[in-house]
Amino acid sequence: MSAITLNDYLLVSGILFAVGLFGVLVRRNIIVIYMCLEIMLNAANLALVAFSRFHVAPDGMPDYHGQALVFFIITVAAAEVAVGLAIIVALYRTRQTTQIDEINKLQY
């Protein structure tokens, strides 16, 4: 069994992203869609961490810039989740539904 390479990480990241996108495109419940969005976000995080680990400086240390960026993304994502969930709650209060195919008032 060979060692795990960057490509393996990127493959997992891509699969995660695809799963998330698929969920966003096909699921009906807004909360599930929202979770799928988070999956896509974390797929990107995974890719960043992987790049960070495998981009080794001449002294053998990994490049920590990518990992620092991931911390920021997680922090911002937490705030974003709070805002997003608040929107969903407000939406539910007005429309009494979280089914996205029923929320189509922007249609002409």
Partner: peptide, 17 residues
């Protein structure tokens, strides 16, 4: 242009993707 505005968020997301 109104024919492109179907009001379904997911189709917009599809086009966006």
């Amino acid at each position: 242009l109104r024919f492109f505005q179907v009001g379904s968020a997911q189709s917009y997301a599809m086009v966006f993707a």
